[in-house]
Design a protein around this nucleic acid. Sequence first.
DNA 1: GACACTGTACCGGCTGGACGGTACTGTACC
DNA 2: GGTACAGTACCGTCCAGCCGGTACAGTGTC
Lengths: 186, 186
Amino acid sequence: MSIVSTSNTRDRILDALQDILISDGYSSVTLELVARTAEVSKGGLLYHFPSKASMMVGLMERVRALAEEEFREAVVSEEGVVRYFLRTSLPQTSAEGELYWAVIAALRSKEDIPPEAGILVKELFDRWGDLLHAELTDPVLAETIRLAGDGMYMSSIAGLGRPDPVLTQQVVDRLAEASDRVRRER
Amino acid sequence: MSIVSTSNTRDRILDALQDILISDGYSSVTLELVARTAEVSKGGLLYHFPSKASMMVGLMERVRALAEEEFREAVVSEEGVVRYFLRTSLPQTSAEGELYWAVIAALRSKEDIPPEAGILVKELFDRWGDLLHAELTDPVLAETIRLAGDGMYMSSIAGLGRPDPVLTQQVVDRLAEASDRVRRER
DNA sequence: GACACTGTACCGGCTGGACGGTACTGTACC
DNA sequence: GGTACAGTACCGTCCAGCCGGTACAGTGTC
């Protein structure tokens, strides 16, 4: 079987899984709920994914494909990696970001999530770090940007902190401007 | 292992709960495991806490007491709020930090954790934000520090990013130095 | 072009185990 | 004799994975 399936049902199942993960968290993910959301029977779901774990892995594989496209886009973009990263760190602008955190939260809770899923998400985060460090000559600033970006995800998704978009945007702007002074030539 | 050694059974139960939360996550918390870890029978546990939820609330109340002490200490400390916050954001130095994240992860996963627990943790995070903003005349820097601190917790606890303590320390130092230039008088 | 057969896609009921909570009885100590 | 447990048996619920089906579209064969 090829990685890209022609089956529409398979993608519908992954869509359902993703929606539930984002809105309700991993602990709400049951085979029955995913099946119902995807308008498939439980048996039909298990035909495509023989276990809950394999379903998660299927989703992560799809996520990886999207993420790699995003990395390529960030590198060649006009705005540069820093602005791209910080922009997509604002959760309003990124549905995938929410998905990552849902997986991380599930990992932290040691829910019986397949290791591959965790490893993949970690790789994606590391990749952003690598790109930031490659873009800037100042590793301390690069790391600060990485940490602040992670904090932004966190803050809003966990519902922490005051939701002050203006202030957050000012942080983004200041970090972006600082990065302009230490950007490596392409 | 427990942070505080006590002869009191109630505290022993909360210690066990905390240990399990930190090391294995909320989904691993079962009445039986907590009881076994605390070397209490299940009946004994339910004598002190009539439900799993009330046990969590009990832990959160104890956490709040410790946190409030920490806030007072941070404000009157020689190093100031910024350094205190960033220092305790490095998870190696803070067991409570890990506990907060365990609760946040559980919240994100929508596990049937009592609402009070989530509200309390959110309040504690907000409080740090308030203290940072009160300490500095530059709200953008205060917010950057808050975000970076949250990112540090995240990064290491979720196992994200390269574990580069030297680089992380440099970030801390730079933010702390920057804060020295905009510190409000006491 | 009717027949036999095969693989794909999907349905839905069932079971076995885990877990929260209940409900007792027993016991040691003050 | 009340407090602080220990010990255990049990109930209801939830859920993952399994299994026995169904429908149907090919595909070769004569």
